[in-house]
Every structure is written in C-alpha cells, then in structure tokens.
Nucleic acid binder design. Structure first.
Lengths: 213, 213
DNA sequence: TGCTATTAACTGACCGGTCAGTTATATAAT
DNA sequence: ATTATATAACTGACCGGTCAGTTAATAGCA
C-alpha cells in the first residue's frame, strides 16, 4: 500500500557490462594495495566496485586472473610511455635521460603507482608467470629504451664510454631505492622535492665522486 | 605380542626446548620464501622443523609472531655486520666502501638472503610495525654506516663533496636493483660475476659519465 | 505506442575446502 | 610423582567459487 503510487523508482542495479571490467580492476588495485593479494577479499573488491561478488566472475574467471589483468592494464601504458620518451629524445639523448628521470621522480611520489611492482615482488615466488610478464613487458622494455639512449649519448660524444648495463643500473637503481624507502619503509623521503633529487642524482651520475685535478 | 621383546626402542619424540625456536624459524623462512606469508601453512612449517603444528604454539603465540621473530633473528646480524665493516674501515673509507660493495654483491647471489626483505615489501601495507622495524633496525643503520664512510672519505679528500644522501643512493641503489632483477624477475644476472659488476659499479660511481677534458 | 518474449546482466544464498589456533591426552625427563 | 614437552584430533571461522533464480534492457510484434 505504502508506495504503490511512486512509479519512477530507480532500478536496484543497472546493466553496465561495458564499464565493469575497468571498475573491477580499479577496486582490485585498491584492495590489493591495502591488504596484499591473499588478504584481499573478492567480496570487498566487489563492494568497492559497486556490484556483487558473483558478478566479478562474469568478467574474470578467478582471483589470479583479476590480478593478471590488473597488471597488464596498469603496466603496459608505462612501458609504452618509456619507449615513446626514448624515441622522441634520440636527438638529445642526455636531455631525454634527464627528462625521463624527472618524470619518473614525479610519478614515484604516487603510492598507488608502485603498488603493482610491490605485488609482483611479493608474488613472484608463487606465480612465476607474473614475474616473467613483468620482466618482459615492463622492465626489459624500459631497460632497452634507456640502453638505446645511453648508446646514442655515447656515440655522439655526450658521455664517455662505460659499461652500458652498469650505467643503466646507476640510472635506475637510486630511483627504485628511494621509492622503496619512501613507500615501503615509510622513511622521510627525498621524493618530496623531485627536482632537487634529480639534480643531485645527475650531479653524481655525471661528475662521479673522484676529485678532479 | 610381536615386539614386546625389543626394549631399546627409541622414543617417539624428544624434549628439545632449547633447540626448537631456531629450527622453527629456519623452517618458517623456507616456507615463507617459497609460498609467501599467507600461503605458507603452519602445518608445513612444523613438518619441516620436525615437530607438530601444536608444538609451534608452545614457542610462538601466533603465525605473525613467528614472522616477526624471524625477521628479528635474520636481520640483526646484518645490521651489526654493516656497522662493524664501517667502523673497521674508518681509516681507509673508500677502500671500506669497495669492500662492503664486494661483500654485498657476493651475498646478494644467495636467494634466501633477500627473502626477508621481499617478505617485508609484500607485508608492509598490512603490518606497518614490521616495515618500521626493518627500517630502524636495518636500513637506517646501514645508511648511517655508509654515510659515515662517505663523510670520512670526503673529509680526507678521497672523494669530492657531493650530496651525501644522493651518494648513498648511488651506492646502494644499483645493487638493490640488480638483486630484484635477478631474484624476483629471474633475469639474466650480472651478479654471476660479482667482481666485474663491482668494478663497473665503481667505475661509474667514481668517474661519472662526463667526458673529461 | 504499448504489450510480450527473450536474453544479458546481476544477485543472494550457499557449499566445499582450508587452515590458524585449541584441547585433551600422552610421553619423556627429573 | 610431578612437570615440561609433545602430539593427534578437533573446532570455528573464513573465503573462493558456484548456482538457481531475479531483474533490467531490448527486440519483435500487434
């Protein structure tokens, strides 16, 4: 009797097959980030994404499948971006390296961004395919991009000859370290001032520690 | 009737309260390393340690407690070692840094050694105390040790003046990166030849990339 | 322009299995 | 005889995944 006279009720739910997958992945990222893969509950992911747990299984066959899709979705863009930056900067490789470092330093401020690699680190033992995917689709691509820039810089005399892999490590390593220090260990972070950090980074990287004559 | 006539039976189990805790921690490290914290089963840890699951609870109140004890047990020695090396090398700071890097490069070949930090990375979100413990008891101590060496080197003119934090990052970062690349991503590793890797590392670190006049 | 049939999208309730932790009991050591 | 050390058996809760059934959207038809 009460509300028989209110026809324009809004439906209890809507069909939005198009938008669901991405929403699910976003929700999953949040939950995985906060609790880790195992402790994250499908029920909570569903709630956050605004549908029922069962509905998730209309889009993904399993929890691991959600994780894989998540990694693929969040990771490929980064790899492509790195390649693009490297390609665009072939003319001025040293400048491109500096730009990439600056961009990276800015991005690394964002905690959600390093959530994926953290998941990968934690799960690489149990799901080697995930580690492999991350290596081949992200890190190897970034390494290749950097390598090509370094080679170009060396070829045109902008930097001296040195072992390429060592240079790549010297370029990336400190950034990774600071990201871990900041987001994993909650340490006081140099990332708060990315420009200054990159300035110092390049000062050491270019000039080295030796006392010049 | 059968074997009533064999008195020298060995007992079904022995009381070894003294030795148990460490054995449990070793077993836990193996299981945690292989499967991660959540997927590791107390039952399996017990089996590996050679006792029953219930017996573990005579020594540790919970699974997390085992993890914490494990981290504390495996981590303090490292911190002490880093401090010792730094103290011993105060006279020749640059040499000490090289030694530390060489030792580190050797140690990093061992997969079990980086298992603990990997656990910390994976669990830092859910158990911040663990991350904090690791920061204060390991990384900050290692950083301090390195910092003092760098300061000493700078003071006695062995290296030029540069931002100390940046130098620490430039020193540690590449090693961390290579360890992750090797043990997490299963990549082809420069750690196979630690001497050469350190040689390249120091070549870049000391001389930098700039073309000298 | 409504009514009906059909399908895609979605849900609530449930099941089977797992596992951290507990309890009742037994055995070694003293 | 007593106590510390150990186990086997058990419990309670949780959670990934499933399924029978419901609802929203849409296409066909009058």
């Amino acid at each position: 009797m009460a509300d028989t006279a209110s026809p324009p009720r809004q439906p209890r739910w809507r069909r939005r097959a198009q938008a669901r997958p991405e929403e699910i992945l976003d929700a999953a990222l949040s939950e995985f980030t906060a609790r880790g893969f195992d402790a994250a509950r499908m029920e909570d992911i569903a709630k956050r994404a605004g549908l029922s747990k069962a509905a998730i299984y209309l889009y993904f066959p399993s929890k691991v499948a959600v994780l894989k899709a998540l990694i693929e979705a969040k990771v490929s863009p980064l790899a492509r971006q790195a390649q693009a930056l490297a390609a665009a900067g072939a003319g001025d490789p040293l400048g491109a390296l500096r730009t990439i470092a600056a961009v990276a330093a800015h991005l690394l401020q964002n905690a959600e961004l390093i959530a994926v690699p953290r998941l990968v680190i934690g799960l690489s033992g149990r799901f080697p395919e995930i580690a492999e995917y991350y290596r081949t689709h992200v890190v190897e691509i970034a390494r290749a991009a950097l390598s090509s820039l370094i080679e170009a810089a060396s070829a045109q005399g902008a930097i001296r000859n040195a072992n390429k892999d060592a240079v790549v490590r010297a370029f990336i390593g400190p950034l990774i370290f600071e990201a871990l220090w900041t987001h994993v260990l909650q340490g006081e972070s140099a990332l708060r001032d990315p420009e200054k950090m990159i300035e110092h980074h390049f000062d050491v990287l270019l000039k080295g520690l030796e006392v010049r004559a």
